[in-house]
Computed example of a mutant assay.
Amino acid sequence: PDFHFNFKKPSSFFYLTGGFVFFAVIAFIIEVVLIVKASLAARDGNLYNYPFTINFFK
């Protein structure tokens, strides 16, 4: 088989994967921050309302 690699112009798959990895890292950092906030609120005995959730029951 004859393989040819073009290193001058990255493929769109490279950009798509890079964007997904960037989004995943940002989401992980936000998740850690929200977990720390919730644990500090629970430690103080306060009720913590999780953001980005839908309240089905009231």
Rank of each mutant, 00 (worst) to 15 (best):
I29C: 12
K8Y: 12
V21W: 08
I26W: 01
F13N: 04
F13R: 15
V36C: 06
F14T: 11
K8F: 06
F20L: 10
L16Q: 11
V25P: 02
I29A: 08
K8P: 00
I26S: 07
L40T: 03
A27W: 00
A24I: 02
S12W: 07
Y15V: 11
S12Y: 03
P10C: 06
A38S: 09
I26Q: 02
K9D: 14
S12N: 11
F20S: 13
F28D: 02
T17S: 10
G19C: 14
S12A: 15
Y15C: 14
K9R: 11
I35S: 05
V32N: 10
K8N: 14
I29H: 09
Y15K: 08
I30L: 14
F28Q: 09
T17N: 13
L16I: 12
L34C: 12
P10V: 15
T17M: 10
A24V: 08
K37R: 15
S12P: 00
S39R: 12
V33T: 12
V25F: 15
L40Y: 11
K37W: 07
V36Q: 01
F28E: 05
Y15R: 15
V32K: 15
I29F: 13
G19H: 05
F22W: 02
K37P: 01
V21L: 09
V36N: 05
F22G: 02
I26K: 04
L40W: 07
F23P: 01
L16T: 14
K8I: 07
S11G: 12
P10M: 12
A24P: 02
F14D: 10
F28I: 11
G19V: 07
K9S: 08
F20I: 10
P10F: 13
V33Q: 12
F28L: 13
F23D: 05
S12K: 08
F20V: 10
S39H: 03
Y15W: 09
F23T: 02
V32L: 14
A38N: 02
S12Q: 13
L40R: 05
P10W: 05
T17Y: 15
F14E: 08
L40H: 11
E31G: 10
I30P: 00
F20M: 13
I29S: 09
E31S: 08
